[in-house]
Design a binder for these strands. Structure first.
Lengths: 209, 209
DNA sequence: GTATAATATGAATATAGAGTCATGTGAATA
DNA sequence: TATTCACATGACTCTATATTCATATTATAC
C-alpha cells in the first residue's frame, strides 16, 4: 500500500507517477520494469519514490488494484442485469464483449492484467491473484452451475474444467485482440469474437442430417 | 550455436551441461536463469561455458531446438498416419493426446516450451518462435483446410482464427495438465482432455429436441 | 621429448538495478 | 524569528548478474 505521503501529493504529481508506472509495467512486465526509468519519466527523485512505496512489488500491487477496479467499473457499466430471465449465453457474450471493449479503451491496463494471468507461476503474484480470484474462475463456476440447473447446458461436461476454460478463453480473446489486431478496427474484430463464442456454444463439427 | 569445442566434449560432460541448463530454464525461466548456477551444477568453470556458447541466449536457443526436436520425434512416433482415410477429429485427438503424454514424460522440456509460447511478447524470443511457427499455427491451418474441403467442419467458421484457437488450445491443455494435476495420474486426466476436445467439436449448448 | 593445439580455469571487470541515507527545502506553527 | 514537520533529493551502497581474459592444464602431433 502506498504511504500517506503519496495520497497527500497533489493530483498532478500522483498521476505522473501512476502513468509512468503503468507505461513501464505495460512495456517491460514486472521483472524487467525499472524503478530508475519510472522515476525519471515521472520526474521525481529515487528517494521520493521510496517515500511513496515500500518497494517495486508494493507499487505493482497498487497498480493491479487500480486496473481491476477500473475494469470492474467498466464492465458493470456495460452489462445490464435483468436477473429474472437469466440467459447464460447472453450474459457470457456481454462479459466477453465488455472485456475486449475495455482492452480497446485501456490497452496498457489490459496488457498489465494479462501479464498477471500469464505469469501466475511467479510466486510473488500468487498473493495478488488470490485476491481477485473470485472475480475469475469462481464466478464462471457459479454462472455455469446456474445455467446447468436451468438446463441451458449439456450436463455431461466437467464443470470445474469448463469454468476454467471459459475463464481462460476470456483472456485468450483479449490476447488475440491485442496481438493480432490493430486496436482501432474494433468493429472488424467483433464478428471473430462472436464466432469463437459460437464455437464454444455449438462446436465446429458439421452435423450430419 | 554451440562451438566445435562443445561438440567435441565427451558425452557425459555434454549431458551434464545440457541437463543443468534444462533444470535451470525450467525452474527460473529465461530471464532469471543464472549462468553461475548452471556452471556450478554442471561442475564446469565459468570460462569453459563461454568456450561452448556465445552467451545465455545462444544456450537457450540450442535448448529450444533440442526440445522441439525431441517433441516432434515423440509425437511422430505416437501418431499413425494412414493418410488414405483422413479424419480431422481423430488426427487432432491424437495430436493432443501425444502432446500431454510428452509433457508427462518430459515435464521440464514441456515447461520450457510453454515458457516460450507464453512470453512471445519478449522480443528476443521472436526469432526463435518464427523458426518453429510452421510446426504450429500453419500446420493447423492446413489440417483445417483439408477438413473443410472434405466437409468435416462447419464452413461458416473463420479459418485463420480457429486454427489459432486449435493451436493455442493444445498448449492450454498442456498448461492445465502441468499446473492443476499431479503429473503421475495421467490416466485420470485423459477424460478431461476428451471432454474439452468434445466441446470444441460439439459445443456446450444443450440441444432442444 | 618437445612443440603445438585444444581445452579449462576462476579471479577480475563491467554493468545494472534495488534500496538507503544524510542532507536540503519550504511551509506551517508557536 | 525560531522550531517543527512534511516532503524532496541524488549520490552512494549492496548485490547479482553476464562476460572477459590471462594463464594453466591436458591432449595430440611430430
Amino acid at each position: 500500500m502506498p504511504s500517506e505521503t503519496f495520497y497527500n501529493l497533489n493530483e498532478s504529481k500522483k498521476q505522473r507517477v501512476l502513468n509512468s508506472a503503468i507505461n513501464e509495467f505495460a512495456e517491460y512486465g514486472y521483472t524487467k520494469a525499472s524503478i530508475t526509468r519510472i522515476v525519471n519519466e515521472a520526474k521525481i527523485a529515487k528517494g521520493s519514490f521510496y517515500q511513496y512505496f515500500e518497494n517495486k512489488f508494493d507499487l505493482f500491487e497498487y497498480i493491479i488494484e487500480l486496473v481491476f477496479e477500473r475494469k470492474m467499473k467498466y464492465i458493470n457499466k456495460k452489462i445490464n442485469t435483468n436477473n429474472d430471465k437469466f440467459d447464460f449465453f447472453e450474459y457470457w457474450r456481454m462479459l466477453n464483449k465488455a472485456g475486449i471493449k475495455f482492452a480497446k479503451d485501456n490497452k496498457q491496463l489490459a496488457i498489465i492484467s494479462l501479464s498477471l494471468i500469464k505469469n501466475k507461476d511467479k510466486n510473488e503474484f500468487k498473493k495478488i491473484i488470490d485476491k481477485f480470484q473470485p472475480v475469475g474462475n469462481e464466478m464462471f463456476e457459479k454462472l455455469l452451475e446456474k445455467a446447468l440447473r436451468e438446463g441451458q447446458i449439456r450436463n455431461d461436461i466437467d464443470k470445474k474444467y469448463i469454468s476454467h476454460l471459459l475463464y481462460k478463453s476470456s483472456f485468450f480473446i483479449t490476447e488475440y485482440f491485442l496481438e493480432e489486431n490493430d486496436v482501432d478496427n474494433f468493429d472488424e474484430f467483433l464478428p471473430l469474437v462472436e464466432n469463437m463464442m459460437d464455437i464454444i456454444g455449438f462446436g465446429i463439427k458439421k452435423e450430419v442430417d
